[in-house]
Amino acid sequence: MKKIAIFASGSGTNAQKIIEYFENSRHVLVDSLWSNNENSYALIRAERLGVETFTFSRDEFYQSIDVLEELSERKIDLIVLAGFLWLVPKYLTEEFPVINIHPALLPKYGGKGMYGKFVHEAVVKNKDKVSGISIHYVNDRYDEGAIIFQTTCDLAPGDTADDVAQKVSELEHEHYPRVIEEVLFADED
């Protein structure tokens, strides 16, 4: 049984889709959801679906190894970021594979501060004809890890940032759980 830990900071729609995708799996368990935001709706979504939750402060994340110790004790195979906004410290990326989903086609619109609506507003401002998602490994720099998967959606000339967000969200929900599963079992082919 492969175990994943989800890290989320916000509303948790991707976290919910991931939990639901694996809830009847005999091969993958969503072990826990972790958040740096005690008011994150992702915590409520996870609890409703029977997934244990943890919160942590900036000091606990960056100045201690408490998170590392708990993840190691739980025998986590993969950390999945689902709207988690902090840079993951090197002590975690060296110990666990960590993957993230980004709401744009990296390397465009990546880096610190480029998340959510800020990405979609930039896409609209630049009159891009397509947008999409990038699923990538996480390293010690925002959005610079090796890309695992990308897919696109077409944009119409009148699309707003909200329209782009909706199209990208549909791609995230469709592809992220499947790609997580592929990453978990890639070394077994």
Rank of each mutant, 00 (worst) to 15 (best):
E121S: 12
T55L: 07
H120F: 10
T53D: 11
N100L: 10
R58S: 10
M114G: 07
G113Q: 04
P89A: 03
F61E: 02
A42V: 12
L92T: 07
K112Q: 15
N100S: 10
V51Q: 10
E73H: 13
G113M: 08
G50A: 05
D59N: 10
Y41D: 15
E47S: 15
R48W: 02
Q63F: 11
L85G: 08
L43V: 14
K117Q: 13
G116H: 01
T93A: 04
Y115D: 09
L105T: 04
T53K: 11
V124W: 06
V80N: 08
E60G: 10
K117R: 14
Y41K: 15
E38F: 14
N39C: 11
I99V: 14
F118Q: 14
S64R: 09
V80M: 04
E38G: 11
G50K: 08
N39Q: 15
K112R: 15
H120N: 11
Y41F: 15
F54D: 06
N39T: 14
V124S: 10
Y62V: 04
E121I: 09
G116W: 01
A46K: 07
F118R: 14
E60M: 07
V123R: 06
D77S: 06
G116V: 00
A46Y: 09
Y62D: 01
W86G: 06
L87T: 02
A82P: 06
K117L: 10
F56D: 02
E73D: 12
G111P: 07
G116I: 03
K125T: 14
P89V: 00
L71H: 00
F96W: 02
L106A: 05
V88F: 00
I101R: 03
K108A: 15
V119M: 05
W86Y: 14
L81Q: 07
V98L: 08
E94L: 11
R74Q: 07
G116K: 01
K108V: 06
F56C: 04
L68R: 08
V124Y: 06
V88R: 00
L106V: 06
S72H: 03
L87M: 07
I65K: 14
V67C: 08
I44P: 03
V67Q: 03
L81H: 09
E94W: 00
P97R: 13
L43A: 12
T93V: 14
A46Q: 07
S40I: 11
K75N: 13
T55S: 12
G110C: 09
V119T: 05
R74P: 03
L106K: 05
V123P: 04
V119A: 08
V51G: 09
